[in-house]
Amino acid sequence: MLTFKIKRFNELSLQELYKLLQLRSEVFVVEQNCVYQDVDGKDEKALHVLGFFEDELVAYTRLFDKGYYFEEASIGRVVVSEKVRAKKFGHELMKVSIATVEQEFKTSEITISAQEYLKKFYETHQFEQTSEMYLEDDIPHIQMKRK
């Protein structure tokens, strides 16, 4: 089971910031072999969900209020370290992220830009595909919404 911390950007310790950027880079840049600008200037506006297993950061999302990233609230940079994926922590991470959006942003409407191969995963969390496939950093994505 994961232990979660939910923090605004200015509440993150330097160590937490370093670890979350390291995890995102480990998965999105190295594992997925995708060169892109992860540090995109949006982290300061996000609410950060950090999931720890045995005191190690292994899961993460960033959340945005409605009107910032999409018209609805959004969840992005959904990432779970490869070394713990077999534990299915992604489902825990999404449940906490959705609950945090509902609590902090007072909405249940959430839009995500999902990697297409994860469509079924997001559908288990009541997201529905709302766009055709598009390329984002040369990776097939779809927009999905939860109401």
Rank of each mutant, 00 (worst) to 15 (best):
L93I: 08
F127P: 01
A99E: 15
R85N: 05
K88N: 10
N10F: 12
L118H: 05
E102I: 09
H91P: 07
R146N: 01
R85L: 04
R77W: 00
G90I: 00
I98S: 05
S13N: 08
E44S: 13
K83F: 09
E71Y: 04
C34R: 05
R146H: 00
E109Q: 14
K83T: 14
G41D: 04
S108G: 15
I142T: 04
G90D: 01
M1L: 12
M144N: 00
D137H: 01
S108P: 07
Q37M: 12
E123W: 02
F127H: 02
I98Q: 04
K95E: 15
S74H: 00
E54S: 14
F105P: 07
V79Y: 02
V30S: 06
H91C: 09
S131L: 06
E26K: 15
Q103G: 11
L2A: 03
A73S: 09
E102Y: 08
E104V: 13
R24T: 07
S81R: 09
Y60S: 02
L21N: 10
A99I: 08
F89Q: 04
G90R: 00
Q32A: 12
Q143F: 13
H91A: 13
V39C: 13
V58A: 04
I6Q: 03
I142N: 03
A99D: 15
S131D: 07
R8T: 11
S81F: 07
Y18C: 11
T107L: 07
T107S: 09
L57S: 04
E132Q: 11
N33S: 13
A86N: 14
A46I: 01
H48P: 00
I110K: 00
E56H: 12
T130A: 12
L2K: 01
E136N: 06
D55M: 08
L63C: 08
S113Y: 05
R146C: 01
I6K: 03
Q103S: 15
L20K: 10
S97P: 05
A99K: 13
Q32T: 11
H48S: 00
S131A: 07
F121D: 04
K147S: 14
A59C: 07
I110E: 00
L12W: 02
N33G: 12
V29P: 03
V49Q: 00
F9K: 03
A73C: 04
E104P: 08
S113Q: 11
I112Y: 01
F52V: 08
Q37K: 14
L14F: 13
K66W: 08
Y60W: 02
H141K: 05
V96D: 07
T100W: 01
L135I: 01
E11H: 03
V101P: 02
L118G: 06
G41P: 02
F4T: 05
A86T: 12
Y122Q: 06
K83E: 13
L93K: 02
F4A: 07
L118N: 05
E128W: 07
D43R: 02
E102Q: 15
G76N: 04
F121I: 08
G51N: 01
E109M: 10
K45W: 06
Q22W: 14
L118M: 11
Q129E: 13
L47G: 00
E56Q: 15
D43V: 03
R146E: 00
D40E: 06
T61N: 11
Q129N: 11
D55K: 13
E11R: 02
T107W: 04
T100Y: 01
G67F: 05
F53R: 11
E82S: 15
E132R: 07
F121L: 08
R77L: 04
D40K: 03
S108H: 14
